[in-house]
Amino acid sequence: MRSGFFVRKIKLIQRLICMNKIVEKYKLSENVCKFIVEAPMIAKSRKPGNFVILRVGDKGERIPLTIVDSDIEKGTITLIVQNVGASSRKLCQLGAGEFITDMVGPLGKATHIYKAGTILALGGGVGVAPLFPIVKAFKEAGNRVITILAARNKDLVILENEMRQWSDEVIVMTDDGSSGRKGLVTEGAEEVIKREKVDECVAIGPAIMMKFCALLTKKYDVPTQVSLNTIMVDGTGMCGACRVTVNGETKFTCIDGPEFNAHQIDFDELLQRMRAYKNEEDQARNKK
């Protein structure tokens, strides 16, 4: 029995060595970190739009993060996280060489990528990260892609160079005009829609931003997808914390989404549900 025990331990150690190791870490802005993580199987099987659920520490929370990119050869995936709460801070404190305790994926439905014509991609804040794989895939599928990156200020604009590589045109917009043009993402989007025919719009960012993008594109009748970052626990359909009303029906973001037709989403309910744990989150943030 002892030998079986040791073989198991060795197997376990081998697994730990090759799983979820952070191989590179970059700081994209004051509060946004980019990680390249070893996860060969996820790297191979993931598709644009998929996410992982990860956990840092034995009492860590399960947090969903979109897979930004992957490198099948190297067996790595790219994750981008904004330090907004206690759990994302724990992740951001990890450095290259350290391990993410648990990571599972790829989860969620993949984005429907096809040759649509002209795609208008709208990214707000750290929402630019989940937007990136979609922009890349639409470009690779032969679409004309116009990308608008919006942030509060210059320091918060992320992935600009990467987006330029995969977009026909990139428009940067900041609330204070410190980079690109001054104004909201919807203003830039409206100009593009008025200027040329847009076949499909993808908007990812804070829920309130997606709400107003949806209102705008509805006005111009442009089909629009959004990717939701609802509260989740297991991410596999088990708990229903991620419930969202789409076209009058309750859907689970984790298995029915995370992307939905923006014009059918009950954004007011979504905004309300995103605040469900606001008090607890505030307490956790201020605790340490």
Binding site: M238, G240, R243, V244
Partner: peptide
């Protein structure tokens, strides 16, 4: 059978209403 059933009645998606699984 890890997919919780709901009753689909008004207000079921309010904060403070959740599945037993959750």
């Amino acid at each position: 059978a890890g997919l919780p059933n709901f009753m689909n009645i008004p207000g079921e998606n309010l904060n403070g209403v959740m599945s037993s699984n959750e």
